[in-house]
């Protein structure tokens, strides 16, 4: 019951595909023969328990780790990613869980940090501000002013800025690491809207999350990792939370299911 592969999805161009990825740290085999495909305009959720290898896989894709074995193809081209900057220039943008924004700088400065527009030796604030608005509007982001320091923004607005920043280099794939982990209900919904807008812009989106409700709300496909292996892959339309949990924990008689049945039994 764990694997339910469906070929019903419309044929889309694959932007990123990983095959046979192995990664080993000393005595620990963190990833074993992992494969992952992301198409343009598709949200792939990457789920798994702690230690399942999600973070390792994200770091392999974003260039922080170099896989021991395996192939990475970007838009049909075989690539070898050896550094985070290389991943960025290839068109793989990562929004880290801690967002990595500078609190003392304003929104414009943060959006273009490291890739400022220049006129001669000077920073071109006008064209950057113009682009910042274009970018934020394309995400229908609710930021009242781009000239306030990041410290003055709410958690959801910061997440928005971080996601908008990932779009500055016009990437093909955007990876979001736990984008809703620290957010309230309304802000989570806003970020999920953002994820959908990224998809509508034709980007491949990889969403890492622990929150099953969020995953089922926006993902097209759900890839489950367990103990460093592909455990299952679902189309989001025909999977229940119970099936997901079973795939993540690797058994139907898991702790979560046991609690569930106890609850049902007692009520």
């Amino acid at each position: 019951m764990s694997t339910a592969l469906h070929a019903a999805a419309p044929v889309r161009e694959t932007v990123l595909s990983l095959t046979g990825v192995h990664k080993r740290f000393g005595a620990v085999q963190a990833l074993t023969d992992v494969h992952l495909e992301v198409a343009a305009g598709e949200v792939v959720a990457l789920v798994g328990d702690n230690g399942a290898g999600k973070s390792t896989l994200v770091k392999v894709i974003s260039g922080v780790y170099i896989p021991d074995e395996g192939e990475v193809e970007l838009a049909g081209q075989k690539v070898r990613i050896t550094a985070p900057s290389q991943a960025q220039s290839l068109g793989i943008a990562t929004v880290f869980q801690d967002l990595a924004l500078c609190d003392n700088l304003d929104v414009v400065a943060n959006l273009f940090l490291g890739q400022e527009h220049l006129t001669g030796p000077f920073i071109d604030e006008v064209s950057m501000e113009k682009d910042a608005w274009r970018l934020l509007r394309s995400l229908s982001a609710k930021i009242p002013s781009v000239r306030i320091a990041i410290a003055g923004l709410s958690g959801g607005q910061r997440q928005t800025v971080a996601i908008a920043r990932s779009l500055v280099g016009s990437p093909k794939v955007v990876m979001l690491d736990e984008p809703t982990a620290a957010l309230g209900v309304a802000q989570t919904a806003e970020v999920l809207n953002l994820v959908e807008r990224l998809r509508d812009q034709g980007l491949g989106v990889i969403l890492i999350s622990h929150n099953m409700a969020d995953v089922q709300a926006v993902a097209d496909r759900i890839v489950v990792l367990r103990l460093g292996r592909n455990a299952a892959e679902f189309d989001v339309e025909d999977v229940t939370t119970e099936q997901l949990v079973a795939a993540i924990t690797g058994a139907s008689d898991n702790v979560v299911a046991a609690r569930q049945s106890r609850k049902e039994g007692s009520s």
Binding site: A100, L101, D103, N104, L105, L113, G114
Partner: peptide, 9 residues
């Protein structure tokens, strides 16, 4: 402001 963020960009 944030050395780690600066390094990552």
């Amino acid at each position: 402001g944030n050395e780690e963020a600066a390094r990552r960009t």
